[in-house]
């Protein structure tokens, strides 16, 4: 039943302009990151690690959370307009499955975004910066960790977009919470705030692994936040009257 819901959600994205945003933002980040990397060779070392920090620093710090916020807001916007709440909530599927299907689709988009970003990183490193060899294996792990850390943020953003029937406000909240995440991360509190988890996971401002030794806490934090937000969504969907 859940896979049917996911299939339905995937259909809703057909021909949608969201793919333009998905394509463009990592491209901008990669273009600037590589340019800055090459311009600052006095300060940065000429290796794949430093290219990674330049590609992902601003992306992970400031833009990944509003980007997933945008994906989440778009999916709920489709239901808020067109009286589609009546349609989806009168279908023979548990309401939580509808939420989880959206979570799965946005997570897939976040994974694709990470994949696209990695592809750009590889291409710009080899073809533009002309770095030798291949990136270290850790960067793939960091990209995956970033995607895992996106899951609780996606759940929270979906919750916000479900409750706040405005497209723009949840994205602004994502930006604000992302900025709060930057501040908390810098004070060593990265694991207690969902938006800081992405920063920690992607390791975007260090060349050595910032999570070394605390991978278990990181994963636990991701799962606990995800569980809490899913529970909240289930409660709200079951208890509240549907307002088309």
């Amino acid at each position: 039943m859940l896979h049917h819901c996911i299939a339905a959600e995937n259909r809703k994205l057909r021909g949608s302009p969201i793919w333009v945003v998905f394509f463009l933002l990592p491209l901008l980040s990669a273009a600037y990151g590589t340019f800055n990397f090459l311009q600052n060779q006095g300060v940065l070392r000429f290796n794949w690690y430093n290219l990674w920090t330049q590609h992902t620093l601003f992306y992970a710090l400031f833009f990944f959370s509003p980007l997933v916020g945008l994906y989440a807001a778009y999916l709920w916007r489709l239901e808020h307009l067109g009286h589609n709440w009546n349609l989806i909530m009168s279908q023979p599927v548990p309401p939580l499955y509808l939420f989880m299907a959206k979570l799965a689709v946005v997570f897939k988009m976040a994974l694709l975004t990470q994949g696209w970003m990695l592809t750009l990183y590889l291409l710009s490193g080899r073809l533009w910066a002309k770095l030798p060899g291949l990136p270290p294996a850790e960067v793939f792990l960091w990209a995956l960790r970033g995607a895992l850390a996106a899951a609780p943020v996606i759940a929270l953003q979906l919750l916000l977009a479900m409750l706040i029937r405005s497209f723009a406000v949840p994205i602004l909240i994502a930006l604000g919470c992302g900025l709060a995440g930057v501040v908390l991360s810098s004070r060593g509190l990265g694991l207690v705030w969902p938006y800081s988890l992405m920063i920690a996971g992607m390791n975007s401002n260090k060349t050595e692994d910032a999570l070394a030794g605390s991978e278990f806490s990181f994963v636990l934090s991701c799962l606990v936040f995800l569980a809490v937000f899913l529970l909240a969504a289930d409660c709200l969907l079951r208890k509240q009257d549907v307002k088309a």
Binding site: M1, H4, P92
Partner: peptide, 20 residues
């Protein structure tokens, strides 16, 4: 209720998915 950016067929496919 409908998804305006999709065709009628695609809208019905979504409902068919959800209803099994």
């Amino acid at each position: 209720s409908c998804y305006g950016h999709l065709t009628a067929e695609e809208n019905l496919q979504i409902v068919a998915d959800l209803k099994g």
